[in-house]
């Protein structure tokens, strides 16, 4: 038996969330007294896959089929299922991403496995029972979920697990083929369109986020948010009312019915902190709130706060970050 980790790659690099997934998987393997094997999807280089040894992975399976570069649900599911069979995987760990969770749900049916998504901690197991903690109620609560059966699939929420870095350890990269046919690529995308990202930082993968609400008064003032984000190396985000009136694109909308983020630092500018917005951000490690209204409910959920005018405070913060060097 083994633990199988699904590693997503993009442009040759292993995604940060997949480094966390690999670290999670190798720690589960240790708990169960076995080893962790990875199966890589997307565009990867052998050198970067070998480096997964630093996250405790001993072996990486890689199918160099060029059509696997983009996400294809049918083909990815078949590939991972074949790897799971070959490795006799009892636990499969993937990222709780639009790829990982989509494949995970199909795999759970195909492999007759129990599935938990949005998982935030390592499992607790005493040999017979197997329990994981997952986010529920859109960030307003957690649930301990017991997974039944021989096989388990776990989708790990981004930024919940610290990635391991054991310098110098390498994994063996082994070529692998799931004998995919044209039929497995029937739902391949016709076209992939990437957004223009300010500073190139994707919101779901970001460590730091600077977010604006209606208090920014209009889209023309977003430069203040972008300047601070750029100085910090942060992604930009917004509240629901802001995306509803099209000041910002909807993929920046953070909250209960938008994206849930859990960065190390979330800076909210001119956002009052409605319960639906808090649900999307309250697993952030440190929350900073800037609002001119001292009664804004967001201050109750914050670690640091400034009661003041965002138009006055934001340039000062950007300046202070630049001075840090």
């Amino acid at each position: 038996m083994s633990v199988l980790v699904v590693v997503e790659c993009d442009g040759g690099e292993v995604k940060k969330s997949s480094l966390e997934v690999a670290s999670y998987g190798s720690q589960v393997a240790q708990l169960l007294g076995t080893s962790a094997t990875a199966v890589a999807v997307g565009e990867a280089t052998e050198a970067n896959l070998a480096k997964l040894g630093e996250q405790g992975i001993t072996k990486v399976l890689y199918d160099a089929e060029p059509r696997l570069k983009d996400f294809v649900n049918g083909a990815y599911t078949k590939l991972i299922a074949a790897a799971a069979q070959q490795e006799d995987a009892k636990v499969i760990v993937l990222a709780n991403s639009n790829i990982g969770a989509a494949v995970g749900s199909r795999l759970s049916v195909r492999l007759q496995a129990s599935l938990a998504t949005n998982v935030v901690e390592l499992p607790k197991t005493d040999g017979s029972s197997f329990t994981v903690k997952r986010g529920a109620f859109s960030g307003k609560a957690f649930a301990d979920v017991t997974l039944a059966g021989e096989r388990k699939i776990i989708a790990v929420k981004k930024n919940s697990i610290e990635a391991l870095h054991e310098a110098g350890k390498t994994a063996e990269v082994v070529s692998f083929s799931a004998q995919l046919s044209d039929a497995d690529f029937a739902d391949a995308p016709k076209q992939v369109v990437m957004q223009d990202q300010a500073g190139g930082i994707l919101l779901p993968e970001a460590d730091k986020v600077v977010s604006g609400g209606r208090g920014m008064k209009g889209p023309e003032n977003w430069k203040l948010i972008e300047d601070l984000a750029q100085a910090l190396g942060a992604a930009t985000a917004c509240s629901k009312p802001v995306s509803d009136v099209d000041w910002r694109p909807h993929h920046e909308h953070v909250g209960q019915t938008g994206i849930t983020v859990s960065p190390n630092l979330y800076i909210a500018c001119g956002i009052s902190g409605a319960i639906q917005h808090l649900a999307g951000v309250n697993s952030s490690k440190v929350i900073v709130v800037i609002n001119k209204d001292p009664e804004a409910p967001f201050f109750k959920a914050a670690d640091y706060g400034i009661v003041g005018d965002v138009f006055d405070v934001l340039p000062k913060l950007t300046q202070a970050v630049k001075e840090l060097g």
Partner: peptide
């Protein structure tokens, strides 16, 4: 195939540390 054994609320924040706007 799965069962919730317990729910929990997120830990409460310690309280906000306020910084005066003049010394942002």
């Amino acid at each position: 195939r799965t069962e919730v054994s317990a729910y929990a609320l997120p830990p409460a924040k310690q309280g906000v540390k306020l910084i005066p706007a003049e010394s942002a």
